[in-house]
Design a protein around this nucleic acid. Structure first.
Lengths: 113, 113
DNA sequence: TAATCATATGCCAATATGGGAATATGTCAA
DNA sequence: TTGACATATTCCCATATTGGCATATGATTA
């Protein structure tokens, strides 16, 4: 073997900066591809390809409207990411608490030893 | 040009499943590389490479201890991810609320029209 | 210093990826 | 049906990525 299976998942999909920008752009309301192209300043085929990746992991949903296709972010698909990263919260919280405590004690006993 | 700069950032670093596993493994306490190798069943060079990527975005911290190097997850570096994904929370929350409301109304007026 | 243990790096092969350009597909209007 | 518009797909290229293997580097012990 020479490379891990691409496992196209949500983590992978949001690893691309342009795709994150697309998700942000489509978060508030559905929009046609053309507007994404214009808003992000990318080439149309590029946008279509990114949208495909996002579609495949259900990060966006589409609906046809005449000749256009209206895309919108499916925020729910972002939850796994939020939950995964949130599972580390207690660790960084602990860290912050330690820092805070150290600052407090320094304030309380300014001249230790 | 032919490919976007890899912009090795946190998003990119956690896109790799093995790296996520490493972060989880190293979240609770620091451990030598050898233990990561054993725990994940990966080859040692592979682990070292993944750790390098994680180190470069400050997702892990190292400290030498004799011949070993002790790695641990720096949870704080995961926060940007958590915050980014959290910025979509209101959208999925809105969605869930709509679903809930629909269920409620169905319960309240079982035979509409 | 030599041998050993622990980890890192270099190199290669196979594959994945993203952009660009051209083209295909699908939908509507005349 | 033909033409125009909107989006998707294909092909090619350059680069990125990951694993495997061999080897280098760093640190400890004999």
């Amino acid at each position: 073997m020479s490379r891990a299976p691409t496992s196209s998942d949500v983590f992978n999909a949001v690893a691309e900066p342009h795709r994150r920008a697309i998700l942000e752009f489509l978060a508030t309301e559905e929009r046609p591809v053309g507007e994404v192209v214009e808003a992000l300043g990318l080439a149309q085929p590029s946008v279509s390809k990114h949208l495909r990746v996002l579609r495949e992991v259900d990060l966006v949903r589409v609906r046809r409207d005449g000749r256009q296709k209206l895309y919108r972010t499916n925020a729910g698909a972002i939850r796994p990411l939020h939950e995964w990263s949130g599972s580390f919260e207690r660790f960084w919280a602990r860290h912050l608490r330690r820092i805070k405590e150290r600052a407090e004690s320094k304030r309380t006993e300014p001249k230790r030893a």
